[in-house]
Design a protein around this nucleic acid. Sequence first.
DNA 1: CTGAAAGCGCTAACAC
DNA 2: GTGTTAGCGCTTTCAG
Lengths: 343, 343
Amino acid sequence: MTNDLSTPPRSRASIKDVAAHAGVSAQTVSRVANSQSNVRPDTRDRVMASMKVLGYRPNSAARNLKSGRFRSIGVVTFNLTTLGNERTLDAVAESAAEAGYTTTLLPVLDPTQLDVAGAFGRLEEQAVDGIILIMSAQVEAPEKLQLTAGLPLVIVDSDGSQPYNIVDTNQEQGARLATQHLIDLGHQKIVHVSGPESSFSAKRRREAFLHTMKAANLQAPPVLLGDWTAASGIVLGRQIAASSQPPTAVFAANDQMALGVMHAFHEKGWQIPGYVSVVGFDDAEDAAAYWPALTSVHQNFGEVGKRATALLLSMIDGQDAPPNELIPTNLVVRDSTAPARTS
Amino acid sequence: MTNDLSTPPRSRASIKDVAAHAGVSAQTVSRVANSQSNVRPDTRDRVMASMKVLGYRPNSAARNLKSGRFRSIGVVTFNLTTLGNERTLDAVAESAAEAGYTTTLLPVLDPTQLDVAGAFGRLEEQAVDGIILIMSAQVEAPEKLQLTAGLPLVIVDSDGSQPYNIVDTNQEQGARLATQHLIDLGHQKIVHVSGPESSFSAKRRREAFLHTMKAANLQAPPVLLGDWTAASGIVLGRQIAASSQPPTAVFAANDQMALGVMHAFHEKGWQIPGYVSVVGFDDAEDAAAYWPALTSVHQNFGEVGKRATALLLSMIDGQDAPPNELIPTNLVVRDSTAPARTS
DNA sequence: CTGAAAGCGCTAACAC
DNA sequence: GTGTTAGCGCTTTCAG
């Protein structure tokens, strides 16, 4: 894939060409292009005709140069393949488009790149007016983020300790909701299948789980650590299924792991929710089609993306950044949870 | 979300500022910024120091204006929320980044927009050197695509009849693989759960299914039409489960609908694959964690994105476009398929 | 090795 | 209503 810069780009008609063709000044063409009112109708028509004939399209690079803005926001992603990241990105792109901004993807293949001044600094060379960093659930927020100093930055993540503008779902509240739901159903032995050590989201959910258990005077069995994938859920689920004193419920930190856990329980022949209940987190699009339909904590990623974009745009406009925002979650009860077995 | 254009953008140090600070000409700064060789080491060091102090970042708008290129490719998406689209986009972004291009998202909220000359024409104003159109599985390729004339365009879709450069997985071959797999297992009554009428992918798969059945001298029951969602799979699955003469196998046009179909079969108490076999299409990340693990046709979306990007970049470089590409698929056999029941 | 001049395409500000 | 001028930040070209 060579990028021969010596190859001239396909020539496009410029404003001058149109002006010449229509027999007017470049300025008039500009006025027509920007649909300003002070152009005589017949002149406008003539110019429009010329634009059409020549296939004229305004050059946004020139516009950007003039205005000092790119009307584009950059989104740094580590791996889009996480459900939440994708939905958030989706919402960001839509919100940005509504505001007349485009969204530029800045994929960071190797997370450690972020620590390299050069690599991350280069983000600022991108034609963007601000940056949204959608933290991967698997990557720690790098300390070196200062490097973006100069460009407005919004982080979508759970680590409130970072000195940046954070938008996220209220993970703690969600985990509390899920845990309390199980407790209310009479479950006492509840195993938590958590995300990886490095993830702040995982940590938040884990801590909230532990806290809620404690508040109910319940002893939490050792927390199991997965990596968010369904495959890790299967492994951990089998581990649970092999224990001598099976729990009556499992709270998985995301739906994919919950799916894997249920898979392992089916293998073992356990009834869900008759023998064991399972709760997930995310409320994935397919959660209702899992077998059984999964009770899960709904995260409003669309809202997260929207708020993050709104926040960034207001920062770009030079306004003071509002305090960090936490989008509330809600529990969607389906068929994978029931009162604890009595045996 | 106002966009007050009168608010001046935050000032950044320009090449002039650096030049003044370092006591050299702007030209020299430019040379240093582009790491050209003909600068004396101490001059270079002085300039670099000034750049650092002032936090200088080259303005890509100006560069773009000079070079006539944006080093960015636009990706038009209708809805990212489809598995394939997301993975393809991911691969496009990575490939583009490797080639030094950024990826600009051009979300089209309302597909009918495409028919409006103005809306689609505006894509060309975007700061992109070419466009990849990832057709939604739910949207018909508009006839009006001619409107992009002027910008290199690659379409990721299955409609070979369009006069554009197409990259896609080999849907027909995949559907044949799935159908033949069931036939080889002795299934004779196979129901196909297809995607929506408007989708070319769905049509391709449906036709290949029908053709393969015919070639095996098997009569295909009426095809059921879903909308790709797991929810529609549940509805259709219940319909199948209610029939007086149940099929021995179902071939769903995507994994999500297969998940829904299996959900309905579980409800009915049917054993999978003991009583009925199910095959999906996509090989979703979680397919192996479904219950039972789903046999599915693997689509290499990563390769599709890569090839589409490579194709577009070569077109941007003014090279002749190679013929349309079809990426082969392969069948991943798991636990949801078994020999047909004999009863 | 370094600098000065010109111009990429566009638009704000000012003529007429 | 329309045209002219100037300049956004950078790089290519040509002089020194």
